[in-house]
């Protein structure tokens, strides 16, 4: 079985990006980048398929130097090779653009299964994998918290939705995005981290002749501020509770 895992690099979740003087772009150069937390689940799942079923696992990322770092993180977790679809610095793609940019590489790799994170935590988008699946004519299931390989041709997945879950039977080739709970991603061991540097990483250029430009304009980016009252009761608890209950009643 051939498995492709899609990985993406995102700024560390604790960091706050700065807004450029133009008021429309976000400055991320200064930030620490990490493998997207949801992609860690996808990589872990892929590596388990390698270890348990002998699957061939290839990580694919579209981007610049940060994407290269995401691939190295996947290598350190046990993925054996990777493809970087090179995005020239300074270009930003929407979900549509990214899926179209990844498409030729994925067609060429022709995997049986594609694993991806549920969403990137910078935009909470959740669209690149679903788009890719549709363009490849793969069946797909998003936000999967349990994946069982039934036989060489089928998967059974548990797909989380609000208030419950669905059990879905998917024939291969298929794409699945991973939700928290599917596994506990391993912490890369030092020997693996060292080996990661020498694993094969192929580069691909963006496809030509496809219009990847955005269908929208970012007019402004602002810092989201919610003014809070910060009325704190720190004396006698019973008094604080009475006052709080009264405030809640007034506002209900």
């Amino acid at each position: 079985m051939k498995v492709v895992v899609l990985v993406n690099a995102v700024p560390d979740t604790a960091a706050t990006p700065e807004i450029a003087p133009d008021g429309r772009t976000v400055l991320t150069e200064q930030l620490e980048f990490v493998l997207d937390p949801y992609d860690e689940y996808a990589v872990e799942e892929a590596v388990r398929l390698k270890e348990n079923l002998g699957a061939e696992v290839i990580a694919v990322s579209l981007g610049g130097n940060m994407a290269r770092k995401a691939l190295r993180c996947a290598f350190a977790m046990g993925v054996e090779s990777g493809v970087l679809v090179r995005l020239p610095e300074g270009i930003e793609l929407t979900g549509r653009g990214r899926s179209l940019g990844l498409l030729p590489t994925l067609r060429e790799l022709a995997p049986d299964l594609i694993l991806a994170g549920k969403q990137t935590v910078d935009s909470d988008d959740a669209q690149v994998p679903e788009r890719v699946a549709e363009l490849l004519d793969f069946v797909h299931a998003s936000a999967v918290s349990q994946l069982t390989i039934v036989d060489t041709a089928r998967l059974l997945v548990k797909r989380e939705i609000e208030g419950g879950h669905l059990l879905i039977d998917l024939p291969l080739p298929a794409l699945v995005t991973t939700e928290k709970g599917i596994n506990v991603p391993r912490y890369p061991a030092l020997p693996q981290v060292l080996k990661a540097k020498s694993k094969p990483l192929h580069e691909m250029a963006l496809p030509l002749g496809v219009d990847l430009t955005a269908g929208w304009q970012v007019e402004s980016v602002t810092r989201q501020q919610t003014a809070r009252r910060q009325q704190i009761f720190s004396g006698e608890i019973s008094t604080g509770v009475q006052q709080l209950a009264e405030l809640l009643r007034q506002e209900a």
């Binding site: 935009s123 988008d125 669209q127 549709e134 797909h140 936000a143 929208w216």
Partner: peptide
């Protein structure tokens, strides 16, 4: 929602259109 987002992503691909999530 979970289902809303994935349906819309799949539809956007079929229509070759942009999708602004969330």
């Amino acid at each position: 929602s979970a289902l809303g987002k994935s349906w819309m992503a799949a539809l956007a691909a079929r229509l070759d259109a942009e999708l602004a999530q969330n």
